[in-house]
């Protein structure tokens, strides 16, 4: 398969992804935290955006990867794809968690509340819960194929559910609390845009790097299990 070969080819340059991520995030952080100016309205608080926005974007991207991987698994039933989905879910959880945490810290000084039932916040919270459920479900199943299939089903259902959650919360909120706290359309100055772009690229590179490493780990774990199984079946009572 072309795609499989492409991924394997990509895997050879795994180190470049890691290095690129470190470089982008390093420079991006330095520019974001030191050289870029504070925002006119938000002051120094705006700097958390350099972490928040990229991780939020990457977590959505990760969930898309999980969705496509899950469909792919149900179609082809290739265990490596399942390893990739498993890896993606864990990393996506990390990114969603980061986005929620930084968003919450940012919201306290800006909106004067840690949490509000904003559609974006709510759908991210639901995304977080879905991913936790996904990983929990995986630990509670013994049969490998069952685990992979059920997890894929859950990921697909969750992905379809997410936009509906978003719209329903949006409707609900416009009914109850008028959108007073919406984010003002930030027109970024170039010195703010550069670190943001760098951080976004770095974040996606980091995701790809972690995904490659984690997929390989899970794959090797599976091989090890198979090998142990073969040894076990040779030593019988």
């Amino acid at each position: 398969m072309i795609l499989n070969r492409f991924i394997r080819w990509l895997g050879r340059y795994e180190g470049w992804f890691g290095g690129g991520a470190a470089l982008c995030i390093g420079i991006g952080l330095y520019m974001g935290l030191v050289t870029s100016p504070p925002d006119y309205y938000q002051g120094e608080v705006v700097r958390i955006m350099y972490v928040h926005v990229p991780s939020a974007k990457t977590s959505l991207f990760a969930y898309l990867v999980l969705f496509i991987g899950s469909i792919w698994y149900l179609w082809k039933r290739d265990p490596v794809i399942d390893n990739m989905c498993h890896a993606t879910a864990g990393i996506a959880l990390f990114y969603v968690g980061t986005a929620l945490l930084t968003g919450s810290i940012w919201a306290k000084p800006t909106w004067n509340t840690w949490w509000t039932w904003d559609p974006r916040l709510t759908s991210f919270a639901i995304l977080f819960l879905t991913l936790v459920g996904y990983l929990m479900l995986r630990t509670f199943l013994d049969d490998k194929e069952k685990e992979a299939t059920f997890a894929a089903i859950l990921a697909i259902i969750g992905f379809i559910d997410l936009p509906i959650v978003y719209f329903s919360v949006e409707w609900w909120r416009t009914l109850h609390q008028p959108m007073s706290m919406s984010v003002r359309g930030i027109s970024f100055a170039p010195e703010m845009l550069t670190p943001l772009i760098l951080m976004s690229i770095g974040s996606s590179l980091l995701f790809s790097y972690m995904l490659m490493v984690r997929t390989q780990m899970l794959y090797l774990e599976r091989l090890l299990e198979a090998k142990q199984g073969r040894l076990l079946s040779e030593t019988r009572l």
Binding site: D143, K144, E225, A226, Q228, G229, S233
Partner: peptide, 11 residues
Amino acid sequence: KSFHYHQVLNE
């Protein structure tokens, strides 16, 4: 067929 750590059937 193998289950988890255990190969039950071999070719």
